[in-house]
């Protein structure tokens, strides 16, 4: 049981660093969506179902949607 959590946390940190490094904003947005998805799963392991659902529904779906719309209407690559 501990190993799964360990891997998930490690994945989360890696995708956060990926969001930091990617030059293409679309990839960065996707990376931050992965971070909040893994966080939702972690919330489930932390016995917080309400928060997991909220994080998944709002954190992953809507925030990523808004980010994509915003990147669509501005410049895609970071200069």
């Amino acid at each position: 049981m501990e190993i799964v959590i360990l891997i998930l946390v490690f994945l989360m940190i890696v995708s956060a660093i990926a969001a930091l490094i990617f030059k293409d904003l679309m990839n960065a947005v996707i990376a931050s969506c992965v971070v909040s998805l893994i966080a939702a799963v972690l919330f489930y392991f932390l016995q917080a179902p309400d928060v997991a659902m909220a994080e998944a529904a709002i954190g992953a779906a809507l925030v990523t949607g808004i980010f994509v719309i915003a990147v669509k209407r501005t410049k895609r690559f970071e200069e």
């Binding site: 969001a19 930091l20 904003l25 931050s32 909040s36 966080a39 980010f67 915003a70 970071e78």
Partner: peptide
């Protein structure tokens, strides 16, 4: 970071 969108992504990561 220099780009504003990247900074806002940073803010969302801090919130998570």
């Amino acid at each position: 970071k220099k780009n504003l969108i990247k900074v806002i992504i940073g803010l969302s990561i801090v919130d998570t």
